[in-house]
């Protein structure tokens, strides 16, 4: 077996546990904050159809910080955009707080999105309106019935209390991202979806953003983060690895679990795939029900 160098974006977490098909798809006891069922996303392009997401089943518990990882083109952004209600799946359903986004009209979906979700883009300037100050950015999101001090509170919570009157151009990238996260606090959102929020940040800014995410999680906010950044992983309770539009593994509490989809297909983690150079494996199930994958 030839050992190939590990690509930087891959996660190599051992040991890998292979679950049955009912694993992640099984309904948890409490209603999850995010539930995806058989989600498929197909883009129509000039060169033909592009299958971005190929039937994902996923549950994310409320208050959980979840990472979505995978190589470029694996479907991370498409999945997160569908969960955020920014796009509709080509097939399947996406629920947030028990609301099936696919069954809503455009208007109601937009309203639901406005009520439930904060979306944080990769580029800090994309999350803010350039002409408003930090306080104004947040104030416009505060519901009428909310406490007027919520803006100051949010800014203080995320370490931005000295920047009330600063416009985005006067803030660092890390501060901009934290301000973007603060929107969730003032808007009372229960779900934050961040698409590589630290990709353009230096170490110190990254740490500040991660601290902000921790604070959000402490407030019970469900955080869903797509990332390539290994520094983010320790802050996540659950990591979902995607490959070719499907879930390759789910890692919780240091245990990486491979996923068998409804068609019985198993995606091995990349590190495990490297062990099978001919893309062939022998699967043995012993008397105790343990499954072993061996090289042929």
């Amino acid at each position: 077996m030839t050992h190939r160098p590990e690509p930087p974006e891959l996660l190599a977490l051992d040991p890998v546990v292979i679950e049955g098909a009912s694993g992640p798809a099984a309904a948890p006891l409490s209603a999850p904050a995010v539930r995806c069922r058989h989600v498929v996303k197909i883009y129509e392009a000039a060169s033909g159809r592009v299958f971005a997401v190929r039937g994902i089943d996923l549950d994310v518990e409320g208050g959980c910080t979840t990472g979505v990882v995978g190589p470029s083109g694996s479907g991370k952004s498409s999945l997160l955009r569908m969960i955020a209600g920014l796009e509709l799946p080509s097939a399947g359903s996406v629920e947030i707080d028990g609301i099936d986004l696919t069954s809503l009209s455009t208007k109601r979906r937009a309203r639901t999105r406005a009520q439930l979700v904060t979306h944080v883009h990769q580029r800090p300037p994309d999350n803010l309106l350039s002409h408003l100050t930090a306080a104004q950015q947040l104030a416009r999101l505060v519901p009428r019935e909310a406490d007027p001090d919520v803006v100051a509170d949010a800014l203080q919570t995320l370490g931005l209390d000295g920047h009330h009157d600063h416009r985005p151009a006067e803030l660092s990238s890390g501060e901009q991202q934290r301000l973007a996260l603060a929107r969730a606090i003032v808007a009372g959102h229960r779900l934050v979806i961040a698409d590589e929020p630290t990709a353009q940040l230096d170490g110190e800014s990254t740490r500040a953003v991660l601290a902000a995410i921790d604070r959000l999680a402490a407030r019970g906010v469900t955080v869903l983060v797509a990332t390539h950044d290994a520094r983010v992983l320790p802050h996540l309770q659950q990591v979902i690895a995607l490959r070719d539009g499907a879930i390759a593994s789910i890692t919780e509490a240091g245990t990486e679990r491979a996923v068998i989809d409804r068609g019985g297909r198993l995606q091995l983690p990349m590190a495990a795939r490297d062990a099978f150079s001919e893309d062939r494996a022998v699967i043995r199930v012993d008397d105790d029900g343990n499954v072993r994958i061996e090289r042929p």
Binding site: T106, A110, R113, A114, H119, P125, D126, N127, L129
Partner: peptide, 13 residues
Amino acid sequence: RREFRLLAGEGDR
């Protein structure tokens, strides 16, 4: 475009 994406993401119609 950037502003539109942000506001549309927040639910503006």
